[in-house]
């Protein structure tokens, strides 16, 4: 899943994908093609991409509701991995 999303982001620039992180948690971002947004799984916030310009100001982010955030299994594991990483860092 991660590879696919990177492939999609290559249009916007692969380098950008490598460099961008969530402004609040500094965790990696995931590209969501359906809503055309960058999703920070660590804090459950979606940042919009307007005309190819990602908007990563915390105020522009939308908090994902749990119902809408029903993701494929791969993503859930991805999320739990991130959580594990977070716990590992805090521990």
């Amino acid at each position: 899943m991660v590879r696919v999303s990177k492939g999609v982001l290559q249009k916007a620039g692969k380098t950008l994908c490598d460099i961008l992180v969530c402004p609040l948690s500094k965790q990696p971002l995931r590209y969501c093609g359906d809503s055309n947004s960058l999703i920070s799984d660590a804090i459950g916030v979606a940042f919009p991409i307007k005309n190819g310009i990602p908007c990563l100001v915390p105020r522009d982010g939308k908090i994902l509701e749990e119902e809408n955030a029903s993701k494929p299994d791969n993503n859930n594991t991805n999320l739990s991995e991130v959580e594990e990483q977070n716990q590992g860092r805090s521990a």
């Binding site: 620039g13 402004p23 310009i53």
Partner: peptide, 20 residues
């Protein structure tokens, strides 16, 4: 020069560590 544009806040810099 390969240029990318991005809306971001200096107080919450969305740039990965050690990348530029």
């Amino acid at each position: 020069v390969e240029t990318h544009f991005l809306v971001g806040d200096e107080e919450f810099l969305p740039i990965k560590e050690s990348s530029v």
